[in-house]
Design a protein around this nucleic acid. Sequence first.
DNA 1: TGCATCACATGCATTTACGCACGGCTCATG
DNA 2: CATGAGCCGTGCGTAAATGCATGTGATGCA
Lengths: 294, 294
Amino acid sequence: MHVMQVNWDDMRTVLALVRAGTLAGAAEVLGVSYTTVSRRVQRAEGMLGHVLFERHPEGYIPTAEAHDLAAAAKQMEQQEHQLLRQLAGQDQSLTGAFTLTAPELLIQAHLAPLLLEFTNRYPEVELRVKATNDWLDLNRREADLALRISSDPGDTLVGRKLTTQRSGCFATPEIAERAAADPMAVLDWVLFSEQSKPPEAALSQYPNARVRARFDDMVALVAAARVGMGALRMPVFLGRSTPGLVPLPQVATTPYAPIWMLSHRDLQHARKVAAFKDLLVPWFKQYADLFTSL
Amino acid sequence: MHVMQVNWDDMRTVLALVRAGTLAGAAEVLGVSYTTVSRRVQRAEGMLGHVLFERHPEGYIPTAEAHDLAAAAKQMEQQEHQLLRQLAGQDQSLTGAFTLTAPELLIQAHLAPLLLEFTNRYPEVELRVKATNDWLDLNRREADLALRISSDPGDTLVGRKLTTQRSGCFATPEIAERAAADPMAVLDWVLFSEQSKPPEAALSQYPNARVRARFDDMVALVAAARVGMGALRMPVFLGRSTPGLVPLPQVATTPYAPIWMLSHRDLQHARKVAAFKDLLVPWFKQYADLFTSL
DNA sequence: TGCATCACATGCATTTACGCACGGCTCATG
DNA sequence: CATGAGCCGTGCGTAAATGCATGTGATGCA
């Protein structure tokens, strides 16, 4: 009746569907059409002789069997990721893909020349940059090396602190001058979404703060500050390198999360990773003051 | 976010090829043509950017990368097998496939009526019998339940000893009578390939033994004995149930490997497995003397 | 030295899997 | 009650994967 043999890629498909909940979602992840996901699931069910999902208008609901299958597939996925890391980690060539992830504003402010230098020095390496604040999964090898602004880089990855950081408060010269002239006047602010109010270091000097807007994106926040919507707090490296913004007078810097350079243990000795590290470390040592003082 | 991905079935194919050494061998295992194996390997090499095999006239020689890949695929395979056992182990239905493996002569001699009883009692179960002396891999679910004649059933499987056994010496009535009439006359023997000489219990009574032939197959051996090629040693259950053979007079029985009923731990509580066990155990209890005395 | 065998590559026909377009269904919204 | 957005099933044409047949080189044997 049932030849108990499962197609491994069907297992991977079932895992994606259990995770996503809908055919379209799983298809997106897998890079195929949802029609294909549907048919692979049907085939898997036929092979196993078990119903794996309840079809509902809201989506596919996994049965207990599907959860078992997904658990196995998850382990298989781990094996795949480990293998890919292992192969990349043993790669001592200076050719082929190398993927870096870093916050986009860090790249914009300072990293771009370093990237240029890297590509000049190693023209055979195909550099891929993922500029995002999202923490990509280095276990899945979504990147080979990550630069992260964080006080807690976790303990699953290996790396080092490239520099500590401090933050300052910045605004357009007009706003800065007005505030300096009359510290008790109303001072407009734009905040990053997490912050509830302007920093104490600024409030003590300019107590009449008015929050004009909150942004969930740093690029947009900076743009708002540059058109004079208000003052803002940001790491000093950003403030110093943003044209049209100056430090608020009489406001001291405050601590900020440091910058970490991280890679997976399996990849730390891969030649391309090491080569990029060898470029990063001296640069941050030389220009540390860009990140720590106004 | 897209990462470098490998087709999982290509990984399975590489594993098969590492194991088999040749395209044709791997294809045989996978149930595809060797052309397909060749192309899947090429695709995997393209995906990974590594050469996985050295093509030689004698076959495919795996590189270090291929061994890494095979190791990962082996783990994945383990997950698959565990899943299949798990799903089967949870199956509390009395429908669908149930696979039994047992020595063919045990089935021929006694088990056949039990199989009939089982299919009568559970007509929805599709019984599959693998009659072989080979030890099928119950981890891979090549069978759900195994009957094995062995003094060392191993410790990876769970089960119980159904009965102890003793062996006796048998021959055609003509040979048996001639031997009884003149114990010092030459007595012909046919041996199972492992045995170097007839059993001591027989030699002490009939010292003039002549080995006529050795066989690597029990069925063939019995056939030879039945046409009078010589006496032979075999478990008493076989001797008693083989028409045309009688015990050699004045030869005592000797110990023989017991019969074990074994299943994988994951399957021991599956309903179909339990149902078959419930048939086996009382039967062997009732007819134990068939296996222990002449 | 033929001749058979084994292992693999290549070209071609066929089967299989896939993506796309269409339609049905449900649910939230105006 | 109409409408649009999700989400899924089905049919159809196309693209990819597969199997089969054929050819090549290496090896073993009479």
